[in-house]
Design a protein around this nucleic acid. Structure first.
Lengths: 232, 232
DNA sequence: TTGAGATAGATTGGATCCATGATCGGATCC
DNA sequence: GGATCCGATCATGGATCCAATCTATCTCAA
């Protein structure tokens, strides 16, 4: 396994069809364009994408691991209903990983990293002023990713991102309501301040508070769209 | 999506061929029967198992997500070299998830759960007396799984288990040396005591100490088998 | 009209086939 | 003798084919 080989590792996951299909389907599910409970068919998914069943199957297998679809042999594939337990699990995982990461980040981030986070917040403020929730979403993701990367454990981000599907789905369903937007920017500012001060405890507490806010909207969504939820 | 359908969910992941192949290959890699750097071929893997390339590809795709193999298109699939960074990532993830889980477990475990953990430790003591490292391994896994399950977030276990491949590989390579065995049993006892007392802080501290011990052997392995390791 | 049974259709799981591209070895030319 | 070019071989990625089986519908009889 020489260097030339190592240099090419990752290509397989980069531009291949299965990866694109996975990203497409995940986005469709998270935005509820493919609504919870919806029946999917590998053939019907493959045809409009202009691909065969093979990469679709690969994508669905990954989505099953994300618990975003359920595959029943000889019957069909279904978008999972929103499960309060799965949402709680996602919140648990994200809090565990990101809180631990932010402690490390507060201890070891460099000036360039702080600069990057500060620039991100400036952009968030602009998105807030423009009421541009979609841009804010991307910036929010980038903000948290940057924090995880500077902890030295980028894996924290990729796992958190992966587990986060259920939270994303709930959040997107509630997106039209953007009254929380300025509050979130403010929380991000507090978090950055704690990191800049190297205060791991404060950074963790700040992030924990921030993450838990996302959960607050789930009851509203459930009241509005009960058919999207599992019965307990 | 009625109940009959829901009742059958999971069968797809239970007895199917891809799952078996995944488990088999993972075990072979973790025990270094398929040594780091080894080139794998889908055809050569499929033939002795009596299956086609399809389930092998499915298994390899999952192992790639575990970072246990690297797939290079038109070239080959390779068992990844042991990467100190990947090992550290695995330790980070496990510590983050399990420490957070054990806090919840200490707060909410019931008598039956405590009984289960106590019985497990008795079995560990027997394995220790018999110098039966393999049995101890299974019991250790079961012990940690039980703790995670009683936190109410079994996901902590499945993700921890999944991310743990690199740690397992290092540990198995060092297994013949079982002088740590009695120490680990003792640490498990301390952990159980903290949980039984409902002392979340003590339980977390105890588990953290316990998990970090696993890392101690990596340098020995590297000295013994440098060709298994990535260069930094 | 209603019920049961058979049959047709559709679904995923697994196996096979083809396309693309990378490596390696031998033939050939300088 | 050595470098170069070309083709055979083999790798994964994607497409297609077959098998098993579950659902739904249609038919026929009571």
């Amino acid at each position: 396994m020489d260097e030339r080989i190592l240099n090419r590792i990752g290509r397989s996951a980069a531009g291949n069809v299965g990866e694109r299909v996975y990203a497409t389907l995940r986005e469709s599910i998270v935005t509820a364009e493919l609504e919870p409970g919806r029946r999917l068919s590998e053939n019907e998914l493959a045809e409009p994408l202009g691909v065969s069943r093979t990469p679709v199957r690969e994508a669905l297998a990954r989505l099953r691991e994300d618990r975003l679809v359920a595959i029943v042999p000889q019957l069909g594939t279904f978008v999972t209903l929103i499960s309060p337990a799965a949402v709680a699990d996602a919140a648990f995982v994200r809090e565990a990983l990101e809180c631990k990461a932010v402690r490390l980040t507060a201890e070891r981030i460099d000036a360039a990293g702080l600069e990057e986070l500060a620039a991100n917040i400036v952009a968030q403020e602009r998105a807030e002023a423009d009421r541009d929730a979609e841009s804010f979403d991307l910036l929010d993701e980038s903000f948290h990713r940057t924090i995880c990367i500077h902890s030295g454990h980028e894996i924290a981000w990729s796992l958190s991102r992966r587990a986060n599907g259920h939270l994303d789905r709930v959040r997107r369903l509630s997106l039209p309501d953007n009254r929380y937007l300025s509050e979130m920017v403010s929380e991000h500012r507090n978090l950055l301040a704690a990191i800049a001060n190297g205060d791991a405890d404060e950074a963790e507490a700040s992030l924990r508070e921030h993450l838990r806010m996302v959960l607050s909207s789930i009851d509203d969504i459930r009241a509005a769209k009960p058919e999207y939820f599992e019965q307990e």
